[in-house]
Design a protein around this nucleic acid. Structure first.
Length: 422
DNA sequence: AACGGATCCAACCGCCTTCCA
DNA sequence: TTGGAAGGCGGTTGGATCCGT
């Protein structure tokens, strides 16, 4: 026996709504407001179940709903968020101006899904090479195959998944002829310290973020030492044709020429892949929720008319709470949820005021725009501007290449610190 | 013009979460 | 703390429309 439909009742109408029914529903809700859906049909004189009324209102009759063709910007947003979030239509819809989840879902299923799958299929022949061919022939380059990125494991319960946030997923890395699975944190650990050193100053122009970059640098040095040691062991104990994830990861330098060659490709397949990487980076930047004390905030306005979320509006009032303040737990959880959903980067401080005093810059890694030259355009603003943001304020943008973006990862223990606080 | 397959999308269904008494 | 009601969400369906033959 199946579950009885929640609104099963003999004599109720189903199927397409008539103009008269719409009018009845519209005028009733105008008069009495939303809610009380179960009793609404009877009161409004409709032979429909409450659920059907709610859906009709939410997806069709509610004032302000935008209908019609999606703009290219909206399409790109859907593709990017879907890569991050999967089929979380209501969440995705919240990032589009006045679109309903149902409409976004339909648009994905009927148009975008096929297009993206076709692009991804094409991209199988265009791997992106992130690591150089070493002088040591035993060390093979890492090749992140585009189809592998697509197959990133979305199941957080996977035995191999990186569990630090519950949302960071495994990526399959193809190295020569072997295929191995890695958490994205591990993947990003391929960033070498000296390259990090070159890149971080671009991102760390303030005291506060310099502190973070120093920590990052320190961690990366330790990581590199460890990996080099492991690599040397592996290279001695395996023959030269075998390839392991370890000897890939320890490679000293990124090959900027190769990265450039891949990143400069103008094929649409490559751009789909770069967008995918951008999406993954948005998740990876969860790790930047860290800090040396309380909690700060990240994210620059919703953009595209998406409006401010509850989190953003609470923060915009310069009232960022301390994590030690129990009354602020909800806000902190909102922050985490927001970061998880959008990929907004977050940085630390104990209050909005303090962040302002530190002159901190806030980068919005959740909303990367892929430029014609295959660089990523990142919105940024100062904490002061963020907290005192007025509608219509423009944020500045900075262009980063793929490898520069890769430098923005931070140690995962920082995130765990924060979880500990909660 | 008629037919049939493909596509679109509003609406339904059932599970899950949240709310509240 | 608990259980029922209400609401939210995502998967799926089926009728309408489009389009090629």
């Amino acid at each position: 026996m199946g579950r009885t439909p929640c609104c099963y009742q003999k004599g109720l109408r189903k199927g397409a709504w008539t103009a008269e029914e719409d009018q009845r529903l519209l005028s009733y809700v105008k008069q009495h407001g939303e809610g009380g859906w179960r009793s609404l049909p009877h009161k409004a004189g409709l032979l429909r179940c409450g659920k059907s009324c709610r859906l009709r209102w939410a997806n069709y009759l509610r004032p302000g709903i935008r209908r019609g063709e999606f703009s290219p910007e909206e399409e790109e947003t859907i593709i990017r968020l879907h890569a991050n979030l999967g089929n979380r239509w209501s969440t995705i819809a919240r990032h589009l101006y006045r679109r309903t989840d149902n409409e976004v879902k339909n648009y994905w299923n009927t148009r975008l899904k096929r297009r993206v799958e076709a692009e991804v299929s094409k991209s199988k022949d265009h791997p992106i090479i992130l690591s150089k061919t070493s002088n040591n022939d035993d060390i093979n380059p890492i090749i992140i195959n585009s189809s592998s990125l697509v197959s990133c494991d979305e199941d957080s319960t996977s035995a191999n998944s990186d569990t630090f946030s519950g949302v960071t997923k495994d990526c399959t890395i193809t190295s020569s002829t072997t295929t191995t699975s890695h958490g994205v944190t591990e993947l990003l650990s391929t960033t070498s310290a000296d390259v990090l050193n070159q890149g971080v100053p671009n991102l760390a122009t303030t005291n506060a973020s310099s502190t973070i970059s120093q920590r990052c640098h320190k961690n990366n040095n330790a990581l590199e030492t460890k990996l080099l040691s492991e690599s040397s062991h592996v290279n001695k104990s395996t023959n030269s044709t075998s390839s392991t994830s370890t000897n890939c990861i320890c490679d000293d330098h990124l090959d900027h020429d190769q990265v450039s060659r891949s990143a400069n490709s103008t094929s649409s397949a490559s751009r789909v892949l770069l967008n995918k990487i951008a999406s993954k980076l948005a998740l990876i930047n969860l790790e930047k929720i860290i800090g040396s004390g309380g909690i700060g905030v990240g994210g620059v306005g919703g953009g595209g008319g998406g409006g401010y979320s509850s989190l953003e509006s609470s923060l915009a009032s310069n009232s960022t709470p301390s994590v030690n303040d129990n009354s602020s737990t909800d806000v902190v959880e909102d922050l985490l949820e927001e970061v998880v959903e959008t990929g907004f980067s977050a940085v630390c401080g104990t209050s909005g005021e303090e962040l302002c005093q530190q002159g901190l810059e806030i980068f919005d890694f959740g909303d990367l725009t892929l430029e014609a030259n295959n660089n990523f355009l990142v919105e940024k603003t100062t904490a002061a501007n963020y907290y005192n943001a007025k509608e219509g304020d423009d944020n500045t943008t900075t262009s980063y290449s793929l490898d520069q973006l890769l430098l923005t990862s931070f140690p995962k223990d920082c995130f765990e610190d924060l979880i500990g606080h909660l």
